[in-house]
């Protein structure tokens, strides 16, 4: 090894001693960025565990968007007015778009979308458990928008400041669209709760079913959330599960009153001393069962995703074959573009 090419050599295949030096310098840079509360970008050095945590979190979020298209997609064909049908279709389309931005953000960390998708199909990756509940009535479109998207926003707004640049930036756009989704959910419920007695009952039933699961979307209580501490130290997560859940409860209590609907929690009451609403215990056994695969729709959701993937295989193969066939024709244009 000669001294003049040592720089190149270090990048290509560093000797152990050189690698250790690079890692030390990288860690120093990383620690400084985190301490300054600045952003890590894709080409920056980062600890392997930071990269793994982000890939897991971002891809889980992407998978949640994709699986989350199903319960709402289920009502597109039966939406009760053409305007509602258009809004719902646009919303489900946004979710596919969110999935795309998030897979792209995850890809900047070195894991291709095809691999992330395979993890989902194989059952190796998780998605938000809330989508394993059935969307039985039209009012569920309202409850999902108001409560589920509302909880997602409470979770996601702080992620706009996540230390990993591409993730934070993807979240900015996603949060803008989510706030529209929440408003449309609230509006559906408002229309129902001020409509006929049957419509009001439909709205109350949906809120009764989605209240508990939406509070569980923030994850287990802080004393049972092993990964949270490290994520907070890395400036990925900014608030604890319980802090975010409390913030969400405080928000929806007043919104429920404006909707003239009740939240199904007898322990819900204002606590003057804490300056927050107290709420009753959540059913964590149910949460664990649903996360573990025993929710009402886990198998149905996965079966549908696998079926779509398998049914589309011949189409993807055709597109790839066509791209290979036409590649020589396109090459000059690409060269000009470069």
């Amino acid at each position: 090894m000669t001294t003049q090419n040592s720089g190149l050599h270090a990048v290509a295949a560093a000797e152990p001693a050189e690698q250790a030096e690079l890692d030390r310098a990288g860690q120093e840079h990383f620690d400084r960025i985190i301490a300054e509360d600045s952003r890590i970008e894709p080409r920056d050095w980062m600890p392997a565990a930071y990269r793994r945590t982000l890939v897991r979190q971002i891809s889980q979020h992407a998978h949640s968007e994709i699986i989350g298209m199903q319960p709402e997609g289920n009502w597109i064909s039966r939406a009760p007015s053409l305007k509602r049908k258009a809004i719902l279709m646009a919303k489900v389309q946004d979710e596919a778009g969110h999935g795309l931005y998030l897979y792209s953000a995850a890809e900047t960390l070195g894991t291709p979308r095809s691999e992330l998708n395979q993890q989902l199909l194989d059952g190796r990756a998780k998605y938000s458990s809330i989508f394993n509940y059935p969307a039985r009535t039209w009012a569920d479109m309202g409850a999902i928008g108001w409560l589920v998207d509302g909880a997602a926003i409470a979770n996601q707004v702080p992620l706009c400041r996540a230390s990993y640049g591409p993730y934070g930036r993807a979240m900015v756009r996603i949060c803008k669209e989510e706030s529209f989704h929440q408003r449309q959910g609230w509006e559906i419920l408002h229309e129902l709760s001020h409509g006929t007695p049957a419509q009001k009952q439909m709205a109350q039933d949906a809120v009764n079913r989605f209240y508990g699961p939406s509070l569980q979307m923030f994850g287990p209580p802080d004393d049972d959330s092993p990964n949270s501490k490290q994520s907070m130290a890395w400036n990925i997560k900014r608030f604890s599960n319980d802090e975010l859940r409390q913030r969400f409860v405080d928000m929806i209590v007043e919104q429920a009153a404006a909707l003239d609907l009740t939240l199904p929690d007898p322990d819900l009451k204002w606590n003057e001393e804490r300056g927050h609403y107290d709420y009753g215990p959540l059913d964590w056994d149910e949460f664990k069962a649903v996360v573990g695969g025993r929710g009402p729709c886990n198998l149905q959701r996965m079966q549908r995703r696998r079926q779509a993937h398998e049914d589309g295989a011949w189409v993807r193969e055709a597109a790839a074959a066509y791209a290979r066939r036409t590649a020589p024709e396109r090459a000059p244009a690409e060269l000009i573009g470069a």
Binding site: I66, M69, Q70, G73, I76, M89, V92, Q93, A96, G99, L100, Y103, R304, Q307, A308, D311, G312, A313, V315, R316
Partner: peptide, 9 residues
């Protein structure tokens, strides 16, 4: 929607 061969589709 949610059944197409690719997300883009």
């Amino acid at each position: 929607i949610a059944r197409a061969p690719e997300l883009e589709e």
